[in-house]
Design a protein around this nucleic acid. Structure first.
Lengths: 408, 408
DNA sequence: TGTAATATGTTAACAGTCTTAACAAAATAC
DNA sequence: GTATTTTGTTAAGACTGTTAACATATTACA
């Protein structure tokens, strides 16, 4: 039951019904393709005539294409299969991380083209954009000289203002109030550029996935455990962004307000207990409550190393991981109590040790959730090979074409 | 950008545009009344002809009525003012609390009729419904023998399943899995009964308020500090309820996982620091981490007494309050970091001491929020005289008529 | 006092969209 | 080779928003 905002509503015009049904048709083709006009009519519980009209329009616009004829097991005319026309142009996805930037080229429905490449992240914004633009031009050339780039989706480890295209604060890159759109406009004029925070982009990757298991899951949370803890919250099939573009910062909800100091300045944030650094520090027995210059040992030893040590019998490593697992679960309990999502996705390096920590995580969740059902909230591990950040970046470009129109 | 759920969407029909515009018109009349057809056309940026057609339909259905003519300052025909027809029937609002139940009768736009009455809460569900039904019949009779009751909105201090009309767990009432709708059906057959949790109902009271300052505020949080801490989260003008009807339980997000024991069984929940009992216990210097039989002193001494003692110079009382204030602020910081709402509403007895604690609350919020703007998230105190729980109960009955239609 | 100007509200023709029903096209069953 | 069945199309009808003209009602001003 949504209240209509008297200051910001969208009235219905003659074309509104068409607009709504168009997006539904596109969504159904995207998630079910290949399928026929008759299939669509059945799925939408409408008549084939209406579908014919809608599809004709989408065919003319080049958004949909007809493919081969399908085979019917029974008698009757063979159906003509419909597909989203993925050859309209390409989308560029960029995952900007502290040391390297990853790039993926996809078609217009987000299917990867070629390999994911990576190059060192430049910290000067102008140089950064220049180097990326060079890579983009090269990638487009390598992929058969594709002319049309539908847009660039960029995922940043920090806070962004999507409307202006500004990186407000990305400590790991040393950027504060850097307007990337303006810089890109000089290098690649006319190209649409979309920014998003890494944690929230991961959530996007799941909403806009075409996997069957996301159908019907409209409230979900993506928790990304890495250098920090990024969280994206999806309500009603929509990523919540908040008044200041910072919604979802569960990483800084405390486990203990007197706990170890967090990079944000406060004490005892969830992130301070479960980030990779926290786990490593625990392994090395360092005092988490005080900031110390990093020892070389800690810098060069990664969480992956820790996990493999745990696997090969290093009990100290295993204990460090399981301690993280417990804190991870306790924080997840807060997320579950607050949001009551139908699904939780977890990504980040620690997921590679999921078999070692799952039971501790689940136990801790159950310890603090209010009712039994909440303790059983399903969790899906999103492995690194699915590239959730890059997929989220892609969604920034490709998803708007399939989104529900704003109405009422 | 909302994703359309391929498993649960609403296609547009011939009547969809009308349905959308109808609800917009109703919303605008509700929030701006009195206003004319020409005013509506301007607000909706459409033509007067369309409005005439829409209004004629709403007049016929009896949802809208025409009133006196307005005065124009300039030359021209005088406008005919339109109003929501509030005489369609009455709504019954019930606020069920541990010791007493409060009842309010309103017209169909939620305007109070007569006085708010209260009577002891019966703990046997059947007796409870019988006594309420008797009160309802009496109230209807007292208010001129009104025949039509549009529905009953009931607010419960506990967990409810709105779909089946079941109180899942209300510890203060001793109810577990009590299906109220079924019992009401025997007493008042055919009457619609809506249940909601107290904290979330308070949030409803604000979304559906007609105060000017709620226009444009579509993301907000209501925090109700009383025996417990109830929270209702509004995203996109819609109360989030979650998969198991428990969304919004920020009251059990921890401040310290090793903190005092909470009534939920876990340790260090926000609620365990800021509930009225927590404040009182702090005043009496009791050990919060252990459950003890209540002393008579604590039972009979209320938070209101504590506040008035603080006002009359009892420094121990003031310190207890300000300690609560700090914890309240620290918890609010979590809510703000997680949701980034454009507004926070606070209700409950403690708000009567707001002038004594505001600065501490604000300071604590700033201590843990991630960026400066979040620390300045506006807070509105909702005083008890506004009866947020009863207003929320009313909204359960009256609001659906004005809600946005489900589309796409 | 009468006419011009202006704002409100209504009406009828028109345009866009979904809906219905009939029909053409294409395949299989018998 | 005909009947049956399914797919896809077409044309007429119904509902809704849009446009433009008009009636209604009031004030301004000569």
């Amino acid at each position: 039951m949504r209240r209509i905002d008297p200051k910001n509503f969208s009235k219905a015009t003659r074309g509104t019904s068409r607009e709504i049904n168009r997006q539904i048709v596109l969504t159904l083709i995207r998630t079910h393709q290949p399928l026929s006009r008759a299939d669509l009519a059945r799925l939408m519980e409408t008549n084939r005539a209406n579908i014919t009209l809608l599809i004709n329009e989408l065919l003319e616009e080049g958004l949909v294409r007809e493919g081969a004829q399908g085979n019917l097991r029974v008698r009757g005319r063979k159906p003509t299969f419909l597909y989203i026309n993925s050859a309209k142009g390409v989308a560029i996805a960029l995952d900007v991380r502290a040391t390297r930037t990853f790039m993926m080229v996809t078609d217009s429905i987000g299917k990867q083209i070629g390999d994911i490449i990576s190059f060192p992240t430049k910290y000067d914004p102008t140089e950064f954009v220049a180097s990326i633009s060079w890579q983009i031009r090269k990638a487009l050339h390598d992929n058969g000289g594709i002319a049309s780039c539908e847009g660039i989706g960029i995922v940043i480890p920090g806070m962004v203002d999507r409307k202006t295209g500004t990186v407000i604060n990305a400590p790991k890159l040393g950027w504060k109030y850097v307007n990337l759109i303006e810089i890109f406009e000089k290098e690649l004029p006319g190209t649409e550029v979309h920014l998003e925070n890494s944690g929230r982009a991961c959530a996007l990757s799941q909403i806009w996935s075409t996997r069957e298991d996301v159908h019907g899951q409209n409230d979900s949370v993506f928790v990304s455990v890495s250098d920090g803890v990024g969280v994206g919250v999806v309500i009603n099939g929509e990523l919540i962004r908040g008044k200041h573009n910072t919604a979802g910062e569960f990483g800084h909800v405390p486990l203990s307000i007197d706990g170890p100091q967090c990079s944000c300045g406060a004490n005892g944030c969830w992130e301070a207990y479960v980030s990779n650094l926290a786990t490593l520090s625990r392994y090395f027995g360092r005092n988490l409550s005080r900031k110390q210059p990093e020892s070389i040992e800690v810098v060069e030893f990664t969480i992956e190393d820790l996990i493999s040590r745990a696997r090969s019998g290093d009990s100290k490593a295993l204990i460090a991981l399981q301690s993280t697992a417990r804190y991870l679960g306790l924080g997840l309990a807060s997320v579950i109590n607050a949001i009551d999502p139908s699904f939780i996705y977890i990504g980040g390096e620690i997921t590679e040790a999921w078999d070692l920590i799952e039971s501790q995580v689940r136990e801790a969740i159950k310890e603090r959730t209010l009712i039994k059902e909440l303790g059983n909230t399903p969790i899906r591990i999103v492995p690194a090979v699915e590239h959730p950040r890059l997929q989220g970046a892609v969604a920034l470009v490709t998803a708007p074409a399939f989104a529900a129109p704003k109405v009422a």
